[in-house]
Nucleic acid binder design. Sequence first.
DNA 1: TATTGTTATACTCTATAACTATA
DNA 2: TATAGTTATAGAGTATAACAATA
Lengths: 160, 160
Amino acid sequence: MEGGRPSRHEGVAPLDTMDALTQLSFVVHAMLERTAAEHDMSIVLARMLGILRDRRPTVNELARLLELDKSSVSGLVARAERRNFVQRTPSADDRRSVRVSLTEEGRRLTTAITAEFGAEVAALLSGLTPRDADALTRIAGTVVLSSMHRHGIDLSQVRE
Amino acid sequence: MEGGRPSRHEGVAPLDTMDALTQLSFVVHAMLERTAAEHDMSIVLARMLGILRDRRPTVNELARLLELDKSSVSGLVARAERRNFVQRTPSADDRRSVRVSLTEEGRRLTTAITAEFGAEVAALLSGLTPRDADALTRIAGTVVLSSMHRHGIDLSQVRE
DNA sequence: TATTGTTATACTCTATAACTATA
DNA sequence: TATAGTTATAGAGTATAACAATA
């Protein structure tokens, strides 16, 4: 998880698979956190706004996409609305539902954060050979897809 | 960050790479979260216990390792102590400091979580060819090390 | 004066349970 | 009855600022 391996200061012991993946995950996560924090946002909030870039989901749909309880999403949306990042629109067909969508300011911020994070990722990978960078992208994509498949997640639901 | 489009910026990593890395990070993070949650722990708590496997740091040192404020760590340690995962020992040399260390129960839990998480990672990568699994480990390790180097983190402090 | 750790305070994020208004 | 969403409540996790004890 974090401590422990037979680490040597000289020669730098290679990380084992678990540590390499875990720490890579922490590095990317911390990077996302810093990028979001520069706009006074949490990762979850930035993630929700990212989802809203091309969708107008209901609270329930958002909860499924974020794997959170609907009450958690309700609060998340309320705080985002208070800051004028999103708006709630009564659903036309089902009067119990609301559609959540980005405001102009929310869209602007989301675009900015996405660009900044992309630049950070590029910097993170700048030390890799093009060959390794491509390999990482390809293999990471494979792992993500197989993980979704294992969890029975339909791509068309997630990506649209 | 999450949504779809192949929008592109000059000099910025293609969205494919950014999405692949981000989503891989989320997959691993969610996996850690589930594993920790099975023991009623958060990721941060599990991470702290992992750090304590081979160290007896002060609160300040823990704060540096976890990149948290000392007051956050103080609360984290207090909650962990209340659950009998760690203990605080007055430091011998500096009477302002305390050393934080695992209890027997904390050590047992940490070992269990580490093993479970290792099994999850193995399952996650089981669909990869051995060649790709090795490549992922090697490239992820490279990225992590260069990230640490860029942030001026000394390996001997982190790994020991 | 400076540092270590705790506490007071104030947020965000999260879940469960109870509620409302629709369906 | 069942579902969509909110609210009440409780708790973890986080940071800032103020504090006590020690250096």
